[in-house]
Design a binder for these strands. Structure first.
Length: 492
RNA sequence: GGCCCCAUCGUCUAGCCAGGUCCAGGACACAAGGUUCUCAUCCUUGGAACAGGGGUUCAAAUCCCCUUGGGGUCACCA
């Protein structure tokens, strides 16, 4: 048996949908695991809706996820071209074949008639679908109409019987042909339609296994009928459960949910490996307890047989947990590298940071490693490291006015601030000695200090914050906070 | 509405195919406690589910049927 050939076939009409990303991942995993081939094919048949940006977004998304195609528009391959817009000749030949086989018939019905038909069916609560009006035309009339140049589409003539597919995830699924309408394969302008080109391409590209969303299930029936009508081998199919919106209510859609776009996750700065791990777990599981799986482990353990059948809501909490987990596992230097673009974009540092900025970022990376869920979070969490404190948030302000002695305490500490500033550990020892001399609790010092230095109620170990600021800034902020405290102390 | 698919904790799921070991396991979220200068991490503990009804069977979360519920799809879009 030859190795599987699978494909991901998005249409470049918007951004890369997470469901699409998940489909791409499953296909990629299956290919990597079996030594098969992962093909990327652009389904850009609809010239009016395709955009170049969208195409780029798809490439970028796949790259970000680390899902490199073996064959595709950018990487080439022997069975290309890999964009449908460039496969006109192949389709033209296929149309000729279709006609020669007599599996298709011309339909002269206008869009208006079709719309009326549909409206009538809807009103009468009948089954929707083409009424085969043009199938009854006699041969002479057909030639006459065609000679007269009457516009017509080409419809597949669905034979009697039923189609059964042995779905890789759902088992046997069947439909009676009476429930499948004669679909249009070629538009009146001669352009082929999706359900037609998919079949041609899957056949010519040697696709042996199609993994795609369950929303394609009804298309699959039509496509299988076409495969057979053309005398082609039918590939294996596996229909993945749909991804539902976070609150249920229908499949995740681009319109309703911003979370539908992969870009959303890229921009937020989730760890890409976490996103891969998370995506893998939407509709698939290894066993009853494993949730953390590296890319390599996924390749090793992934199996089509363990794909679940029911739709899954998008669990954003789980992604945050996973991303936090993966970030915690990074070493500070790697985390710093990941943080740089986000900090630069916020204007906190240069895109190509100087050595001092680099040192600060590395220090922040170490300090915030346990506190980040996504890379971009550092921008807001650590503003204090890049900008002066302008206000004291929530509990931080309370910590500055709790006792009338606080301004004096802050000034004393400013005076006692060692020069140069020692490393955080030694600085803490110094602070502990400071409070001991005064017979006060450590917490009484530490809370106002944190407020002074960061303006926030929480954050990394305090003396790391001081080190990140540097002595001069740390000193200045103590005095600033002392003044603020004086001005805001309750009357009494 | 026709057709198709699905149905275990709030969420994602394991278990179902090969019925007993399941008064149903894990993870996320939530709650409580511990560690800690704060926040977070980490650790411990807790509450929390087999949609309903019929069968089959000595025995059903597991097999069958019905109901209900959810979803998908019915374009000269993909």
């Amino acid at each position: 048996m030859t190795t599987p050939r699978v494909r991901f076939a998005p249409s470049p009409t918007g951004y890369l949908h997470v469901g699409g990303a998940r489909t791409a991942l499953f296909n990629w995993l299956h290919a990597r695991q079996t030594g098969g081939t992962f093909i990327l094919r652009m389904e850009d048949t609809d010239a009016a809706r395709n955009t170049k940006e969208s195409r780029e977004t798809i490439f970028r998304g796949l790259r970000w996820l680390g899902l490199a195609p073996d064959e595709g528009p950018e990487e080439g391959g022997d069975l290309g071209p890999y964009s449908q817009s460039e496969r006109g000749e192949i389709y033209a030949a296929a149309v000729a074949d279709l006609r020669a086989r007599g599996v298709v018939y011309p339909c002269f019905c206008t869009r208006e008639r079709l719309a009326e038909l549909r409206a009538r069916q809807e009103a009468a609560k009948e089954r929707y679908g083409y009424d085969r009006c043009c199938l009854g035309l006699d041969a002479d009339e057909v030639t006459r109409k065609i000679d007269a140049g009457e516009a017509h589409t080409l419809r597949l003539r669905v034979p009697e019987g039923e189609t059964v597919i042995d779905d890789l995830v759902r088992g046997e699924v069947k439909v009676a042909h009476a429930d499948v309408e004669d679909i249009i394969l070629v538009r009146a302008d001669g352009a082929p339609v999706y359900n037609f080109v998919v079949v041609i391409d899957d056949h010519h590209m040697g696709v042996s296994c199609v993994l795609r969303g369950e929303d394609h299930l009804t298309n699959t029936f039509k496509q299988v009928i076409l495969f057979k009508a053309l005398g082609f081998d039918v590939p294996l199919y596996g229909h993945l459960p749909l991804i539902l919106g976070p609150k249920g209510q229908g499949k995740l859609s681009k319109r309703k949910h911003p979370e539908a776009a992969l870009e959303h996750y890229i921009d937020r700065g989730f760890h890409p490996e976490a996103v891969v791990n998370w995506l893998a777990l939407i509709g698939w599981s290894l066993d009853d307890k494993t949730t953390i799986l590296s890319r390599d482990e996924l390749v090793q353990h992934f199996s089509l047989g363990r794909i679940s059948k029911s739709g899954a809501r998008l669990d954003l909490d789980k992604l945050e947990h996973l991303s936090g987990h993966y970030i915690r596992e990074m070493d500070p230097a790697a985390l710093a590298d990941a943080l740089v673009p986000f900090l630069a974009k916020a204007g906190h540092i240069a895109e190509d940071p100087n050595s001092q900025q680099r040192a600060t970022v590395e220090h922040l990376a170490a300090a915030y490693r346990e506190r980040l869920v996504a890379f971009s979070d550092v921008v807001a969490e650590a503003v204090w490291a890049f900008q002066p404190v302008t206000d004291y948030e929530g509990k931080a302000s309370k910590n500055l006015v709790e006792k009338p002695t606080i301004p004096a305490l802050l000034r004393d500490y400013a005076d006692a601030l060692p020069d140069p500033l020692p490393d955080p550990e030694a600085h803490e020892a110094h602070a502990r000695a400071f409070v001991e001399e005064r017979g006060m609790g450590f917490g009484q010092l530490v809370h106002p200090l944190r407020a002074a230095w960061t303006g926030r109620p929480g954050g990394p170990p305090l003396f790391d914050c001081a080190a990140i600021l540097g002595r001069k800034e740390a000193h200045a902020r103590l005095l600033q906070a002392a003044t603020w405290s004086e001005e805001n102390l309750p009357e009494s």
